[in-house]
Simulated scan of single mutants.
Amino acid sequence: MLVHTRQEREAAARTWLLISARDAATARSDWKNYGVALLRCGALFSAVRIPAILVHAAAGTADRPAVADFLATALDGGPVFYDGGGQQYYALTPGSAARTWNVPDTECLGSDHFLGIPATDITAPDPRCAAYWCVPMDGPGTLCMPAAVAHLARHGRHLVAQQQSEEATARA
């Protein structure tokens, strides 16, 4: 039986992600020094940007550990990171997802996009950068299913719209 430790899977995921860097040595250095490196979307992966308000509505909370648990379940363990500076979540999906993505209030970053991706070992707020993995990559090529990400975003949109409607009715 072959057993891989979390540390081995993280190293494999890190190596896989580095394929998307213009220069792997620079990206490694940026991860070490700044906690984040610019990687090219579109070939190995795309990244769906979802506003935090939608994710928190779908999760029913903004509590960091609870949101991470929700995302891990809703996206079947697919990798997601949070950018606190932009108040956005990013779900990594197959590179082809950007070609057909059509979910309002979200964006799927594909070819010709570069994204600041946190180092694979940053799984909580870190002083080096505003981004961290809520659901770390489980290994190379492990990505979120686009349909699950779309469902989550649409559900969050529905809940936000419902809450806004109720608030407007209460004010009237």
Rank of each mutant, 00 (worst) to 15 (best):
W101H: 08
G42W: 03
D63L: 10
A150E: 07
G77Q: 00
L143N: 00
A124N: 05
A131V: 10
V149G: 05
A52H: 04
L75E: 03
Y89S: 09
A161S: 15
C129E: 03
A12H: 05
A130W: 06
H4D: 06
R64M: 04
G139E: 03
N33R: 14
T73N: 04
A130M: 11
A119S: 03
D76H: 13
A97Y: 11
P94Q: 11
C134D: 13
D69Q: 13
F81E: 05
A58Y: 05
P51H: 06
T169H: 09
D138S: 15
A97D: 13
W101E: 11
R64S: 11
G141P: 03
I19C: 07
P136E: 00
C134E: 13
R49N: 08
L115F: 12
Q164A: 12
V3T: 09
M137N: 00
H158N: 11
H113D: 10
Q164P: 06
A172E: 08
H151G: 09
A153M: 11
D63G: 03
T100W: 09
E166I: 15
L71W: 04
E107F: 14
D105I: 10
V80A: 01
S20D: 15
A27D: 00
P127N: 00
T106N: 01
C144S: 02
L2I: 14
Q7A: 15
C41R: 12
L75M: 02
W16S: 07
P127R: 10
A25M: 04
A13M: 05
C144Y: 09
D30Q: 11
